[in-house]
């Protein structure tokens, strides 16, 4: 069984982001594996515990530095990695085409896991575009997962207080939500072993990708500035609360 996991190399959530030329960020910051992708790898590793012939292949689109994130995936349980090298940051239409082409060259997927969203571009869409490219069904924001007789049953959040129970045949694509599982952090031996696992590098420009009908391009990037001037309300709790309610009702009119 071929289990592919799509992962992304993203700036650390705590990194200080500096903007260059009003259209991109300074990438000299710490990068990590996209947190949702850890849940995707954990789900794939879970399958491997039951299905002995399962092979987990981590796939990413990125610069040479994204190899570090592939190594994290290998330490977390992937068997090998594919790096689709690209010096730009392609949009989701191109990314999905690239992942499809690379997987197709590599093998026949039974299931593809991905993180539900990436914390850098926050696009929420690459798994769906991959689904249409392969003509595979896709479930996203998945919080529980079960595979039986080549049928997948997942629970997916559909509304506040409501969950949809979805079934799909293999091959299919699963977008992992944070509540899906608790990713286990790799041990030192895991990390050592990951260094020896194979990573294949493919140049995106060599994949001869079909042209997309649409595009999503960054035009400008600016820092999000917070201009709040904290007003600390002094006094004992009773008096402070009275003043707070007055401010909320009369000054900002939000209640």
């Amino acid at each position: 069984m071929n289990v592919y996991v799509c992962i992304k190399h993203v700036p650390d959530t705590a990194a200080k982001i500096t903007i260059i030329d009003n259209n991109r960020i300074d990438e000299k910051v710490t990068f990590i594996i996209n947190p949702y992708d850890e849940n995707a790898i954990e789900a794939a590793s879970g399958l491997k515990r039951h299905i002995t012939d399962a092979e987990i292949i981590a796939v990413t689109v990125g610069k040479a530095s994204a190899e570090a994130t592939l190594r994290s995936a290998l330490a977390m349980g992937a068997d090998r990695g594919i790096l689709i090298r690209c010096e730009r940051n392609p949009d989701s239409l191109v990314t999905a085409r690239a992942i499809k082409a690379a997987i197709e060259r590599d093998g026949k997927p039974d299931i593809i896991f991905a993180g539900n969203e990436s914390i850098d571009s926050e696009g929420f869409q690459t798994p769906f575009r991959l689904g249409v490219a392969f003509n595979f069904p896709v479930a996203s924001n998945v919080v529980s997962f079960k595979l039986e007789d080549r049928r997948v049953t997942v629970e997916s959040k559909m509304n506040a207080g409501e969950m949809a129970v979805i079934r799909m045949p293999l091959p299919c694509i699963v977008g992992a939500g944070k509540a899906l599982n608790q990713p286990r952090y790799p041990t030192l031996p895991d990390i050592m072993k990951a260094r020896k696992k194979p990573i294949q590098t493919i140049d995106l420009d060599r994949l001869n990708l079909p042209t997309a009908a649409g595009s999503i391009q960054i035009d400008k990037l600016r820092p999000a500035v917070d201009q709040r001037h904290a007003k600390i309300i002094e006094g004992p709790p009773e008096a402070a609360v009275t003043e707070l309610i007055r401010l909320l009702k009369e000054e900002t009119r939000v209640i």
């Binding site: 959530t13 982001i17 850098d120 035009d219 999000a224």
Partner: peptide
């Protein structure tokens, strides 16, 4: 984008 640290203008 980037955890709310930047505002991006996209051209479609």
């Amino acid at each position: 984008q980037f955890s709310g640290k930047t505002i991006a203008t996209f051209k479609l």
